[in-house]
Simulated assay, not measured.
Amino acid sequence: MPMLMSNNQLKQLNLNKSDALTFYPPKGIFKIVYQALILPNLPEPFHYLNFISLIGQPRIPICYNASAITTTAIDTATVLVSSSVATVGHLKSYSAKEQCQFEIDRYQFLDIDDIQVQSTNYYFKRVDDELSCQLRVNTHSEIENHSALQWGVADYWYAKCQCEGEITYKKQKYEIQTQGVLKHARAVYLPFIAFHFFTYQIVQIRSDLQIILSELRNQWNNIIFSRIEIQYDQQQIILYDDQVIFDVTRVYPKVQTPNGREMYLAREFIWQCQENDQVTFHLKAQSRGDYKFGLAAGYVGSFNYQLRWKEETYEGSGYCEYIDCRPLHWQEKSKTEQILDQIPHFQPYLCKK
C-alpha cells in the first residue's frame, strides 16, 4: 500500500519555483492535467472569477462529469470560466485530440480558451459572447505548497498571485486588479478512488492575508482531511488540521445535476478550530445563491462571511467550490451524526495531509 511522501522526500523532487511554473501538458503516464486561476474577492457584479481547465476525466466521483464527455473520458477537456453574474455558457467541453493544442508554454482550446506562460507571467484569455476575459497573472511569491504521491503518480502546487486585466460582460468592460491563487496539478490515470465530498474555499481578507479552507470525505462520510491554511506575506503558513470542524447549518432545496445526481448545496455554513479547548477560529458564511455547475461533478459560487480569529474580527466576500456525491442518507444526516463524524478521522493512503 503506497504511503505519502515525507517533507524530506518532497524536497528531493527539486520542485522549485522555476520548475513548478513550467506547464505539464498530458504526456506519457500523466494523462490528467489541471490548471486553475481563482480570484476570490472582486467588486460587484462579479464577486469572484475562476478560470479552470481539466484535461482528462479522473476515475474519482467528485471529478467525473459524464455530461461533459463527447468522445471518451480521457479525451475530454473542460474549461470553466465563471463569476457571480448570470451566465449559461461558463463551461466549455472539448476533444483534447481534435480541438486542443497543448505545449510546454501554452494550452489552447479551439479559438475560445487560451492559457500561456512566459517566465513568471501567465496569460488567461476567453473569447465568448457572454463573459470574456483577458488577464495577466504574476507569481512573485514563492510556491506555497507542493506535494507528490509515492511512486510519482501525481504532483501539485499552488501559489498566491497578482492579477490584472479586463473582464467583458454583456459588452461592458471592467478593469480589475486583485490577488488570487494559481494552481497546477497532474496525475496518472489512477484506478477508482472513493472521494465523494469536497469543498475548497478562499477568503482574501486583504492583499497580505489569505485563508484557504478545504475538506475531503469518502463515500462512507469519513473525513480524509479538514484544514485551514492562513498565509501572511513573507511569513510561513499557519496550518490548522486538527480539531477543525466544517458544518453546513442550512442547505438549499435538493438539486439534480446534469449528471443525474441529487445534491444539497450549502446555504449557510461554519468553519471552526479549537486550541487548548478554546475556539480560536470561527467563520460563519452565507451563500449568495450564485452556484454554477461545471466544477468537475459539482458547483462553484460565492458567499459573505463573518470571521473571528485570534480576538480580531473580519467580514467580506469569499469563494466556494462544493461537490457532494455522497449517498443522500449521508447528506441528510442529523446533527448528532455529524458530530460523531469528527472522531476518529480516517486517513486513506492516497492523499496529502
Rank of each mutant, 00 (worst) to 15 (best):
G165A: 08
C163P: 08
I211N: 05
P191F: 03
S147Q: 03
Y158H: 06
W151Q: 13
Y189W: 05
I205N: 05
T168V: 15
V181T: 06
W151R: 13
H196P: 02
P191N: 07
Q201P: 00
A154K: 05
K160E: 05
S141R: 06
Q150R: 02
E142P: 01
E144K: 02
Y169P: 14
T178N: 13
K183E: 08
Y174C: 06
S214G: 08
W157C: 07
K170T: 07
H184Q: 15
I167S: 10
E144D: 09
E142Y: 00
Y158F: 14
G165R: 09
W157H: 14
I211V: 07
T199I: 05
H196G: 13
Q172F: 11
I202E: 09
T168A: 03
V181W: 01
T178S: 14
I212V: 08
Q162L: 11
G180L: 09
L209H: 07
T199W: 08
E164A: 03
Q210G: 03
E144L: 07
N145D: 12
K170F: 13
Q201S: 01
F197N: 13
S207H: 13
I205Y: 14
H196Y: 11
H146N: 11
L213S: 12
I167D: 07
Q172A: 08
K173F: 12
G180E: 05
V188R: 12
R186N: 11
Y169M: 10
Y200C: 03
Q177G: 14
G165I: 13
E142I: 00
A185N: 02
K170W: 01
Q177I: 09
I193Y: 11
A154D: 12
L190G: 09
F197I: 09
Y156K: 05
A159L: 03
I193R: 15
S214H: 05
Q177D: 05
I212M: 02
W157T: 01
S214P: 04
A185W: 06
L209S: 07
K160F: 07
K170R: 13
I193K: 03
A187S: 15
A159R: 03
L182G: 06
I211Q: 02
E166N: 12
Y189D: 15
I176L: 15
Y174M: 06
Y200I: 02
E144F: 08
Q179G: 09
A159G: 03
A194M: 14
G180P: 15
N145W: 02
Q201Y: 11
Y189R: 04
G152L: 02
A187Y: 06
I143E: 09
L213G: 01
T199L: 10
Q179M: 06
L149N: 10
Q177L: 07
Q204K: 15
D155L: 08
I212C: 10
V181D: 07
V203Q: 11
I202H: 10
E164S: 10
Q162F: 01
S214R: 04
K173D: 07
K170D: 14
Q150W: 00
Y156Q: 06
V188D: 04
Q162K: 14
A154C: 10
Y169N: 12
A185C: 13
Y156F: 15
F198S: 09
Y174F: 15
A159Y: 00
G165H: 14
I205C: 04
K160I: 02
I176D: 02
